[in-house]
């Protein structure tokens, strides 16, 4: 159950600041597309706009041909786009189970929800051990797992991931990226926003580079990995 997401000529402003300039990205069905860029390039802005938290001044965002711009955030989730936001944003006072339940808020198919719940616990058994625990007491890595699991509970057509590696130890990050690959193998389209270019390009099929609000490069991931300018800027030479 995946879809394609086509973003065309997106213009987003923060007050007077032109945060995204004519951004065009195509997230291919069933693939992992990654968006790279330094801090402040506009990556989170883009994801927030897709999810409907921000309104673009111009451009379009189409999910399988259907326009998302102008829709309420809860509508967009209903249509099949869910996000694991920057900084995890788990609900700290609620239990792990309640967080997961919230991920499935827009759904009413009890059987399907149960199936996804079990599936999510297979991907992340650690969460299964901590179902009754308050999400705020989980470690950073566990919270990241929860955030992604929660987004998966919506059975999304497109999964948006905002900097899953942020602030986590390399060992944990490696595990998370393995799971991302597994999720994609299961058929979910993924748009991955990352600062850790190396890992992102390893798991992605297609890569875009965003610099101060504009797309600078777009190429298959393998090409970008080998590209010397990318090496220098994002891969530490």
């Amino acid at each position: 159950m995946s879809a394609s997401l086509v973003i065309a000529n997106l213009d987003v402003y923060y007050g007077q600041i032109h945060a995204l300039r004519g951004v065009s990205i195509e997230v291919e069905k069933g693939r992992v597309t990654t968006l790279l860029g330094a801090n402040g390039a506009g990556k989170t802005t883009l994801l927030r706009t897709i999810s409907g938290l921000l309104s673009p001044r111009g451009g379009s965002i189409r999910l399988d041909g259907e326009e998302l711009v102008g829709r309420e955030p809860h509508e967009i989730v209903r249509r099949g786009v869910s996000q694991s936001p920057e900084g995890r944003q788990v609900f700290p006072g609620l239990s792990v189970k309640e967080n997961l339940d919230l991920g499935a808020y827009t759904r009413s198919d009890k059987v399907g929800i149960k199936a996804d719940f079990d599936h999510v616990l297979t991907l992340w058994p650690r969460l299964g051990e901590r179902l009754a625990q308050r999400a705020g007491t989980l470690s950073g890595g566990e919270q990241q797992m929860l955030a992604i699991a929660r987004a998966m509970m919506a059975r999304p057509k497109v999964l948006l991931l905002d900097e899953p590696s942020l602030g986590l130890a390399p060992v944990i990050v490696a595990g998370i990226f393995e799971t991302i690959k597994a999720i994609n193998d299961g058929g979910t389209t993924v748009l991955l926003v990352e600062q850790n270019a190396h890992l992102a390009l390893k798991v992605a099929h297609m890569g875009y580079v965003l610099e101060t609000g504009a797309i600078q490069k777009c190429a298959p991931a393998a090409e970008l990995l080998a590209d010397p300018s990318i090496r220098e800027a994002y891969l530490g030479g």
Partner: peptide, 18 residues
């Protein structure tokens, strides 16, 4: 549950489809 989520964070609640 939705009320409790919204009281934590309106934005994140919106991302849940609430």
């Amino acid at each position: 549950l939705a009320m409790r989520a919204v009281s934590h964070s309106r934005e994140t609640a919106a991302l849940m489809g609430i």
